[in-house]
Amino acid sequence: MEIIRIIGENTQGIFPKVLSELVRRKVEVNRAFVDRSNGKIEMIIEVRNSSLNGKLLHSLRNLQDVISVEYLKEKYICHLELSPGENSQTTFVEPFGKAY
């Protein structure tokens, strides 16, 4: 499993577009968290990325209105891993500096 962080302009349909892109490239999506603020959207998505690796980042980056895409290290999602049943607001703390 990998965790991908995607930041984009908060335009209509960007989140389903990202999911659609992942699905069409045979990437399995397990969980996703979305935060919208100040005209931006931030998506944290847990995926099984098959063999695409870095190419997947390029594909997502190339979607309209996507600003950045990166893999997150596993240590940053320990709260999510340990308490998947918890409310998403309490799961992420670092390194983003705010709670999700």
Partner: peptide, 14 residues
């Protein structure tokens, strides 16, 4: 239409 067109367009607006 919005969802149907999503995977076959570069971008779409509703």
């Amino acid at each position: 239409s919005f969802s149907l067109m999503m995977p076959i367009t570069k971008h779409n607006f509703r």
